[in-house]
Nucleic acid binder design. Structure first.
Lengths: 210, 210, 210, 210
DNA sequence: TATGAATGAGGCTTCATTCAT
DNA sequence: TATGAATGAAGCCTCATTCAT
């Protein structure tokens, strides 16, 4: 009996996942509004009614999708901030991790950047808020890292939050344009080293810093 | 007669502008999809049919709106790249100009960042492309500036395009979060100096650079 | 200008009426739930969107329909209670008026009896309440009439409200079955005289009353 | 084996009854259309598929429900018409029985009055007809009683069918409003005596009858 | 036989666009 | 040229019924 309900549970999860994957595909291609429930259902190979057994609205699919991935990214970043011994090393890891994640979740990332910027005004905010909070958690996580680095004199005296924000902007912008590129392209992760250097050292020539 | 047609022309432009302003207001508040033509027309104090005399679709309003502002920003940035004598100075001007523009065009900027990221997939791309090209033109403009700076040994050896992209990401991210802040807030333009310093010098402590 | 807007007003009312008539037809044939907006629109010879310019929901059509007629009936009954000189005469008028109204509004009356009884549980009550109140107003109106009759010793000592209720039940039941009869049938109004006699004198033989 | 199949039979009936009770609860609260099969199944503690083993459609549940109760009422009324010695006494019994039945079957009666009036048009009529016929059987039963009373000079010369109809209308109306009353209320059965008197003697003062 | 997940037709409503006035 | 009422396709969601387990 327990066996049976366990299997049910697993199947339930599997179907749910199926739908989320289909939704991710569609949303990343056409955006939230231009994706219809019919398309999601078809893409997931389910009848519309079935989709509604798992999610009570289109919005909920969207939010679940974004939230799950944002959480995943957040926890990966958390680990990264514990990895290296010095703050600059940790920062390098953070950058590496985010780029790698983006590389492996391109469909999602199209949605994500879109979400990061434009969703708040377009969908009822109760949900959107939750995602937005998670995004800010990322910012804060790195801000904390920077703060520690400053304390350890590994970083200059900067405003941690603003700086974290700027870093994420750099990364998102880079990721985004990279994803949009049509043809074959160099590895996104490879840009990590350079971005770390840029962020740590700026672009100014040596003399600028003396 | 010529007088008359000139007046007509002026009136035409004035009405068109009126509509664009109304659309900017509405789009910035509710986003593209949640804004209806009826709302735009009402907000512009025209009948719906009249709006359609000026723009052949809702999409076109949106694109015209974004395009005009992006063009304005682009030309402001062009001027900025001619201003100072050295590349770093020009770069500071670029940053200052973009922030000032954002400060004065908050409504638009909400739309813009949204556009920058999420629109392409949601609206037929023929239009979206035009805006996207203008965005890339900004990137290229600054990339050129960086290239010059490198040649003049004012900047380190970096990939100009990638670096320009990173800079814009930093700025957009900063602008966006600033706009979203609810209460009274410090001037956006004031962040310019710091962002310039960050970008030019990185956050690494002095020793990192030697 | 005033001319024009007056004409508009009239046309608006005409169209609204058109829709109500169509709705009355459909509702009376299939009931509220089995009637679709598409059917109403088609029956009214309008596109669905047009119907929604006049009524913001299917429910609103239904309520408007019922409310208007109930009001009409109520005001007819009010007049009737002012007509005759004695209470029994007034009562006869009330009965006559209600039957005549039913005769001329058969479609509506099918809906009405249904409404009177079954709607409250099936549709959100905010609206239903309004109709229900109007129905009670009819009861009260006649109750008042009975009270006066009692005071004038024209009626026996009975509970006015309960008695009024019983009278309306008699009438509704009679009307309803009459409407349902398929073939040609004797005039409904002709039953009025007999119903008045029944109500005033009961069915008991003379001896019962002594 | 026979034992076994008898038990099966009993169990079958018990389950069926369970479902009907659940349906009665739900229908009386939300009406036919606003009650879903899922709700009925849940309320009856069965799976939806199981419900369908007993009734082949939602409609059938509804009809079975109404039919069974109407039959019960009908047979109670039949007994009542055999009870007393004179027609007026029998009539009093009829009234008493119907009111008592309504008192004990409030949930059902909400459905019933609704059915009595509005259902025919809303659900395919094949079924509705059966219930309607049972209702008419009640009318006829009492009509017969009245006819007998007339023959025995216990009643005046009235049209038996119309009169029976009027009586039932009085009762239904009274019952219905009584059920709808929210707070604590006087006994419904207590109204029986008065209603009998009203029906037998009318409301006219003595002089009206001479 | 009991279960309850899956189905998919159908309902209500919105809104970009057209066109008669 | 300006108006805004009319259009109707398309979207989201519900739920009676079926059927594989």
């Amino acid at each position: 009996m327990d066996q049976r309900s366990q299997r049910k549970q697993r199947e339930y999860e599997a179907r749910r996942e199926e739908i989320l994957l289909a939704a991710e595909r569609m949303f990343s291609q056409h955006g939230f509004f231009k994706t219809s429930m019919a398309e999601i259902a078809e893409s997931a190979q389910f009848a519309m009614g079935t989709v509604y057994r798992f999610f009570k609205s289109k919005e909920e699919i969207y939010i679940s999708l974004v939230e799950a991935k944002v959480e995943e990214l957040l926890s990966l970043l958390k680990e990264a901030t514990k990895s290296g011994s010095t703050a600059p090393e940790k920062l390098r890891d953070v950058i590496r991790v985010k780029l790698a994640f983006a590389d492996q979740n391109r469909d999602f990332f199209r949605i994500y950047v879109s979400e990061w910027s434009g969703f708040e005004w377009t969908v009822k905010s109760a949900f959107g808020d939750r995602v937005w909070k998670k995004y800010l958690a990322q910012i804060d996580l790195v801000a904390k890292l920077i703060k520690d680095g400053i304390k350890a004199k590994e970083f200059r005296h900067v405003n941690p939050k603003d700086t974290s924000l700027a870093l994420h902007g750099m990364l998102n912008s880079t990721i985004y344009v990279w994803i949009l590129q049509a043809g074959p392209k160099e590895s996104l992760v490879d840009k990590g080293e350079w971005l770390s250097a840029l962020f740590l050292g700026g672009i100014g020539a040596a003399k600028t810093n003396t």
